[in-house]
Nucleic acid binder design. Sequence first.
DNA 1: ACTTGTTTGTGAATGCTTTCACAAGGAACC
DNA 2: GGTTCCTTGTGAAAGCATTCACAAACAAGT
Lengths: 228, 228
Amino acid sequence: MPVQHQKMKKVAEPTVARLSVYLRVLNESLENGERTISSDELARRSGTTAAQVRKDLSAFGTFGKRGLGYSVPELVEALRSILGLQRTWRVALIGAGKIGQALYGYQDFRRQGFHIEAVFDSDPAKIGQKWDGVVVRSERELEAGLAEKSIDIVIVAVPASAAQEVVDRVVRAGVRGILNFAPVQLRVPAGVALKNVNMAVEIEGLSYALASGGARRRVSPVERRSEE
Amino acid sequence: MPVQHQKMKKVAEPTVARLSVYLRVLNESLENGERTISSDELARRSGTTAAQVRKDLSAFGTFGKRGLGYSVPELVEALRSILGLQRTWRVALIGAGKIGQALYGYQDFRRQGFHIEAVFDSDPAKIGQKWDGVVVRSERELEAGLAEKSIDIVIVAVPASAAQEVVDRVVRAGVRGILNFAPVQLRVPAGVALKNVNMAVEIEGLSYALASGGARRRVSPVERRSEE
DNA sequence: ACTTGTTTGTGAATGCTTTCACAAGGAACC
DNA sequence: GGTTCCTTGTGAAAGCATTCACAAACAAGT
């Protein structure tokens, strides 16, 4: 059953994030050989509600069978199509420091079709290193490298102070998707998709929860305070 | 000016996340020697609106001077107090793989008062390694280590398949704050604060934006599509 | 073929968050 | 001290996202 991207209502960001979670859950179901799954069960395993699951999916078409639930393989395919994961994406990593190295080895990216085709850095000690097959190149070759390798998405893993300039260059070179790990608020022009992974913000959110007494010492389960 | 945590309205999560961004912006302003800042300017540098800034702050007290703006040093102190960053937090890192190593070296954590006091792993090749001062310990010593070092917050950087079990143990040991990097939806009891950093979800969000044509190839700036 | 069980898809209702708009407070200069 | 110019703090309005609730659809068993 192919996905009908049908009337294409505008879809909210939280919805897309949840679809991604559903897909991860469903891939596991698939490996377990489960044929079908109900919105209720999918919700339970994804940390949301059945109604939410159904609403989320309903924005893209109708995938379930009443009285039965969803076909796991079909829903996996549908979600992969919706999320644009049926093709492979050509990715460049900018910044070959600790975080860059960790991301380079991150299997989940590769598994979902994100292939890191190029790595750039400004440190002469790093330039020329060979990371199983991919050579770390000088950031001076950035524009040339992006074009040469037809890069779709760039991962920014440089220090905060260098991030905006890198992004400006990358955008000028025509890249339309950026995943930013530097803890700064970046500016990109309209038409460029930008996502931030800001660990500092997250851990400070924990600090807030603990400090403001939202998380109790060891009390009976009365009030929930476990987020996302 | 001390922070009056006043009537303590319940504060939304997005608000707390933005406070954390404001603080980062203000720290820079402080280094630049700026004395005051308007909600307008703070908003511009934080990627939000002036009204949002004022609403966010108003939940915690009144910090500004009409006609003048906010005192940068005072607001920095206020935010640090609100976010619970005036103390140091004792953190343990579980998982000494690539991601664990990257996080261990992440300066932003240390700078804001998050001190990694212990590292655990299950790999015999890693156990016993000394990471400038901190010895990597066996996960079998997890409970003992957490107690011994009075750990407040745990960072989970283990494979997805091991994450839930680790979290269960950590919670049983009394830890109330968890920062999870494993791409799974974890279950924690009420009273435990949990934050997820899910890079796979973020990059799939980019894939969606690019695939669904939300990000255009090279078109005049008509519609915004740069998120967060 | 009918009946019983289940589970979806979806308008309507609720609950949150953000944006608007403006009165009130204060600075600065004459 | 009065006047002008800014900028905050905040109710009210608008905009989004989640939850509710139920009719419609199908499976399965008799």
